[in-house]
Design a protein around this nucleic acid. Structure first.
Length: 737
DNA sequence: AGCACGCCGACT
DNA sequence: GTCGGCGTGCTC
């Protein structure tokens, strides 16, 4: 008779909004599954794939109600202990169901229960016989000789694709010949197989500040050490990253690099791949599911020396933890805006702590959160004050728009300046964060404006295709030819978008080609690259665009940057608007005057006396941040308090409010210590995509106190009356109001 | 989330 | 008399 195994129960996190993992009986035959492995289990009347979170000998659930694990899908853990700890921490901190958190950490193919096995590809490698052949003796077969020479340099072998990169291409016939002679063998290798050590490659010499930054972080390899790399645009942050990655590789450690969605371009990946001798795994939403799984497995096995990815890559497993880098750490796209609303930068810092590795947050315009962490002594700040190559910082000036004649948003002063720069062979870049022709379509006879039927917003007129669209829900239709209210044909655009400015520029500067860079002009595949190339080649002398301009594209010949409307961020109801506006302005301004040509920045504003604007222009981003942070401190706003939003929406106006009222009362009943509750109040745009939205704001100067209150409060929310009549979500550390 | 159960209006 | 609407509850 077999003695009873102490491990009889396993806890399984199943997909779905269940607050806890569920208990199952471990299979009677075979080894029990390990935590971090996937299992197939019955749930209700269906079968699902879940992740084992723990093993136990007993369960609260009576034995006769426990169902058995149907299948163990992984012998080894897919998510190592540290990663499991990170994921359960995140589920707890963001108050999101652990099953959904664990599930979304897996590539889709693994969620579906597919085998955790990387694809293979054919690799050509020198055989023992081939190694004896001296390529120089093959004078009658120069192509075979060249091929053998190439393979000698690549002990791991080369795939057909890699061979084609070596000019001239088309090695098919030659390969067949050398394989036939027994000099080369073809082997199948999994994409997550480890290639062997990466040879070090020398990078360019660093300046003093860069070298100091590299040394500061390198000196903390193997321990938790958060650093903020605050470097002006063009100061060479990427080179610091690359040399740190190489230092980590030299110690056999991997680096995880997180970048904002739009920053993960083929150019960036190419730069990393050409500089680093080791395999680089890339993880982002644009990949096919197979590619994604292969990259994920290459990170997990340790085959990829570097993993570069967007937000969700913060949860990728790795075999040899070395270093975490978050580039453009201020970027809002690190926060997930639906469902599991984590902030990848904050999770990255937590992960670095759990893994005992340094983390480097880089930005020219750090988030206020990170700056406050520097002040508190939590983060070490590393500064790069100089632009690489000794380029001078641009001259920045405010242009008072009051009582000025404007032509489509362009002042005479700005156009004069443009003329001068164009005559001096410079390029001009204009920033306007509004796409389309005009943000409002207005009837001049009766005052009717085109409004979105589903949102509290106006429709933007796009002249290019004669449509009007809502930028909040995507609703669109043809531009009406007559006013629907009075029948007049005098419909006109009110305000300016990039299309309209582009047209005005073509009128004013007929001798110069104008390019537009926004989501509309770059929708077609390859269109973005084409525009960027035409700007770099100098074919376009004037470039007008939205925030896409601010995202790390290099325009070496731009000497003048114009910011057409600086006022949007100054008076918004969202307390983070000024921070975002300043970051955007500094990032755009940073495009001016590289490579030895002095740059100029002109900022058009109706509020040239606004203190924050003055501070930003005359004293720079850091002084601006200090001033704005002082205001936040006085107002009791983040980062000096923690802020959580309970958001609710429904097709009617009443239901969200009722639910949030009930939620408010249930929180008040808990009498939480040092926690303030505000609302419920309508969202800044109450109706969006046909749904009414409202929110409850919960705030505290003490994060632990807030977390305690949330832990007591949130489990009951789903049972509140009206909870099923609304879509609701808890947004911890909400970025947008 | 899914998927049951359950209790009230218009149909073969 | 049934088919089906979506409110309510549960999933180890």
């Amino acid at each position: 008779m077999k003695s009873e195994s102490p491990i009889a129960i396993c806890r399984v996190a199943v997909p779905g909004p269940l607050p806890e993992a569920l208990d199952y009986r471990v299979p009677e035959r075979g080894e029990p599954p390990v935590p971090g492995a996937r299992v197939r289990v019955d749930l209700g009347r269906r079968q699902v794939v879940g992740v084992v979170t723990a093993l136990a000998s007993t369960s609260e659930i009576p034995r006769n109600r426990l169902r058995p694990v149907r299948e163990v899908l992984d012998e080894a853990s897919l998510l190592d202990d540290t990663l499991m700890a990170l994921l359960t921490w995140a589920a707890d901190y963001y108050h999101h169901p652990v099953g959904e958190v664990l599930n979304q950490a897996l590539p889709v193919l693994l969620r579906q229960g597919r085998e955790a096995q990387a694809a293979t590809r054919s690799v050509y490698r020198l055989s023992d016989a081939g190694a004896q052949v001296d390529p120089a003796t093959l004078t009658r077969a120069p192509r075979q000789s060249a091929l053998l020479a190439l393979l000698r340099e690549a002990p791991g072998g080369l795939s057909a694709g890699e061979l084609e990169d070596e000019p001239p291409g088309n090695w098919g016939g030659v390969l067949r010949a050398v394989v036939e002679r027994g000099w080369v063998e073809r082997i199948e290798r999994a994409l997550d197989a480890i290639d062997g050590p990466c040879p070090a490659r020398a990078g360019p010499a660093l300046n003093e500040a860069q070298a100091a930054a590299v040394e500061a972080v390198r000196g903390h390899f193997g321990q938790f050490a958060p650093h903020l790399l605050q470097g002006v645009t063009g100061s060479g942050k990427t080179e610091v990253y690359l040399q740190l990655i190489e230092a980590a590789l030299a110690e056999g450690r991997q680096t995880l690099v997180l970048v904002p969605e739009i920053a993960l371009t083929p150019q960036l990946v190419r730069r990393f791949r050409s500089r680093l001798a080791c395999p680089v795994a890339v993880l982002h939403s644009g990949l096919g599911e197979r590619e994604r799984l292969d990259g994920w497995l290459a990170a997990r096995s340790g085959a990829a020396g570097v993993i570069i990815g967007t937000r969700s890559a913060v949860f990728v497993p790795w075999a040899r933890p070395g270093l975490i880098i978050v580039d453009e750490e201020h970027d809002g796209s690190f926060k997930q805006h639906e469902g599991f609303r984590y902030h990848a930068r904050d999770v990255a810092v937590k992960r670095a702590h759990l893994e005992s590795v340094p983390v480097l947050l880089g930005s020219a315009t750090p988030s206020f959160e990170s700056l406050a962490n520097v002040t508190r002594g939590q983060y070490t700040r590393l500064r790069l004050r100089e632009r690489a190559g000794g380029a001078a910082p641009p001259r920045v000036e405010l242009l008072d728009l009051r009582r000025q004649t404007l032509d489509e948003g362009l002042s005479l002063g700005l156009m004069d300046r443009m003329q001068r720069h164009l005559e001096a062979e410079g390029q001009v870049l204009l920033f306007l964060n509004r796409r389309g022709f005009a943000p409002t379509l207005l009837c001049h006879d009766c005052g009717w404006v085109a409004e979105c039927p589903r949102c509290d917003a106006r429709m933007t007129w796009h002249q290019g295709d004669g449509r009007i669209r809502c930028h909040h829900c995507g609703h669109e239709r043809n531009r009406p030819r007559h006013c629907p209210a009075c029948g007049s044909v005098s419909l006109g655009g009110l305000g300016q978008g990039t299309e309209r400015v582009e047209a005005a520029l073509e009128r004013h500067f007929p001798g110069h080609s104008v390019a537009r860079l926004d989501r509309d002009s770059t929708r077609r595949k390859g269109a973005l690259e084409a525009v960027l190339e035409d700007v770099r080649s100098g074919r376009h002398r004037i470039l007008v665009g939205t925030q896409m301009l601010a995202k790390g594209h290099h325009f070496p010949d731009v000497t003048l940057v114009g910011i057409l409307d600086a006022d949007q961020g100054l008076f918004s109801a969202d307390f983070r608007a000024a921070e975002r506006m300043a970051q955007m302005m500094v990032q755009v301004a940073g495009r001016a005057g590289r490579a030895g040509r002095a740059g100029e920045v002109v900022i058009q504003t109706h509020h040239p006396d606004h203190p924050l604007l003055l501070t930003l222009v005359h004293q720079g981003y850091e002084a601006f941040a200090e001033a704005a942070l002082a205001e936040r401190r006085v107002a009791g706003l983040p980062p000096y308090t923690s802020l959580v939003l309970l958001r609710a929406e429904a097709t009617g106006q009443q239901a969200p409010n009722d639910f949030l009222e009930a939620a408010r009362r249930s929180l008040e009943a808990l009498r939480p210590d040092s926690v303030q509750i505000w609302g419920p109040a309508p969202a800044l745009m109450e109706r969006r995509a046909g749904r009414y939205r409202a929110q409850l704001m919960i705030q505290s100067a003490s994060r632990p106190a807030l977390q305690r209150a949330l832990r007591a409060w949130t489990p009951g929310l789903a049972q509140l009356p009206g909870a099923r009549k609304v879509r609701w979500v808890l947004d911890v550390d909400a970025l947008e109001m």
